[in-house]
Design a binder for these strands. Structure first.
Lengths: 216, 216
DNA sequence: ACCTGAACACCGTTCAAGT
DNA sequence: ACCTGAACACCGTTCAAGT
């Protein structure tokens, strides 16, 4: 019966703040997650959170930690590096799609997340399993990271309307100067998930070819 | 001697505003380009620009148009789709690295740039030259677009310090739980340009293989 | 016809005051 | 020990007033 943290009924905590942040983003998108809105969500003054976190970036980092570690939950390796790497990357994409702002904030202020880097650890491990040397593993990891995070951030902010708007913009260009873009316009941006999978499989194809060539 | 636009010595114009925007970003980065700063740069009241543009997004779109069309200047096709596509993509990367905010703003509000889509037109044309069918050309274009824009936006905001911070974060993780990430930490983020080129060549390798396989 | 400047509705954040 | 609320230094933007 120690319960030192029990006898003061603390209304706020880092965990509650992260809960509120994730709830707001899932309900109304990343732009709705202002500190004033978090205060309302927590039934507290907007500035109360500063008792528990240094600044907003710390909330985003804590949220990123939770989202990333949840995305890694239940991963089961099959033994095939290609299958497993594809799984890991699809999980990372899901995390970025759901919480682009929290995850992107890590880029500008790298921080040491307690559980958040399991997917990255898995990806690096699987790349090393291929037998490629560590210098190539490093750039291959950066490639997959850039493609995954980059494509996901574009897709996270895209809507049915913005995709349609792009098709219209391209279709409306002067066909003399833009014969290919106008011809292709209506085929573009039909299915972001499928386009990502196509690109990812291209990258995995090429990596597999590099592995065979290095082994042969 | 018509000169209808001459007899009123207009201090501001869309062109002058875009000039000022590009100058500020090149001097002090995208975050410095506030409307108040643009006003100071133009020797005018911060709100004067609203006489010439609807909102800030319109300034960003006009700047994107200029940056993109300049990036396409001087392109000379060699006749090899792979060589030319690589050139086109590297030019697009340069534009995104220099003005990430202006170019990224296009994503959320697609607009019909007068000259800005020449690189996109070239990329689509080169992909069609491979002989792949138009549905595959569409997803291949989206793949290259996502990789190029995504990697460039990450790289645009990265600094020597943030890269070093990431290496330190990964190196400091508990090695029992993160054996691969800690082992690889110091090899990561050494040269963004080289890592991008590696990834781009992987994608081009895979596309070339798809072309051969479709032809054979 | 064009520019100014006060004002508005937002941000994240600080700090003295409350309980 | 924790929370409040006024206040500050910023944003982009609107609109009546000036020349």
């Amino acid at each position: 019966m120690v319960a030192t943290s029990e006898h003061t009924p603390q209304r706020l905590s880092r965990e509650a703040i992260v809960d509120a942040y994730l709830r707001v983003v899932e309900a109304d998108g990343p732009d709705a997650a202002t500190l004033r809105r978090l205060g309302a969500e927590l039934g507290a003054d907007p500035t109360s959170v500063y008792r528990h976190v240094r600044d907003k970036d710390e909330i985003l980092a804590a949220a990123a930690d939770r989202v990333l570690s949840e995305a890694a939950e239940g991963f089961e390796p099959t033994g095939s590096w290609r299958t497993d790497l594809r799984d890991v990357i699809m999980r990372a994409r899901g995390a970025y799609l759901a919480h682009p702002q929290a995850l992107m904030a890590l880029q500008s202020s790298p921080s040491s997340l307690p559980d958040g880097y399991r997917l990255a650890e898995l990806a690096v491990g699987l790349l090393r399993d291929t037998g490629l040397d560590d210098d190539e593993v490093a750039v291959a990891f950066e490639t997959l990271e850039g493609f995954t995070i980059g494509a996901a951030s574009l897709d996270a902010y895209a809507t049915r309307e913005s995709e349609e708007a792009w098709r219209r913009v391209f279709a409306a260009l002067p066909p003399r100067e833009y014969p290919n873009l106008t011809a292709l316009a209506l085929r573009l941006y039909q299915d972001a998930e499928q386009a990502f999978a196509y690109g990812l499989d291209l990258l995995l194809d090429a990596l597999e070819a590099r592995v065979k060539e290095a082994a042969g």
